[in-house]
Amino acid sequence: MSMFESVFVAFSKLWIVIFGGGYAMLPLLQTEMKTHGWLSTSQLTDSIAVSAMAPGPIATNTAAIVGFKIDGIWGALIASIALTLPSLLVILLVGKVLGKLQEHRNFKAAFYGLRPAIIGVIIFAAINFAVSNHIIGGRNILDIKSAILMIVAFVILIRTKLHPVYLIIAAALIGILLSVI
């Protein structure tokens, strides 16, 4: 497979697992990055941070920046098309019946089990990223400074309506401060 083909296949697979926001695609994205040797998990984490700071959906932003890192502007283009085109095609093909389908009893019932499964996927993504970034389970079992940052950020995110951009900027400054003292 050529580079374009493998990028296209990898990112079109991601579309299927995006439910309730872009984070559900992270475990699969991480697997794809590893199998192809495209990006390390810390590089992927950095890309997600940039995606969250920029305007727009996390999923499409991540596809564009990760694609760019893999193969420049063409990589970004192919990854973005692969991740978004299925949405357009589904709406063009079944746009008329979507409303009726959504009212169907079994369609609603599927989401009763699907949503909890997606939550599991996202929690797994969080655990996995914490481990891969050596926040937990690294050489010292727990990287104290990172763990504190992580917990404080989590509490702020669930308790307040503070925009994540401010948290990212504050964390960047703390990171710089910790490295110079």
Binding site: Y23, L26, S42, T45, D46, I48, A49, A52, I122, I123, A125, A126, F129, A130, N133, I135, S146, A147, L149, M150, I151, A153, F154, L157, P164, L167, I168, A171, A172, L173, I174, G175, I176, L178, S179, V180
Partner: peptide, 15 residues
Amino acid sequence: AALQGIRPVVVAMIA
């Protein structure tokens, strides 16, 4: 250094 500080926040955002 900045990215070192940001990574835990990304994990918190996912969680």
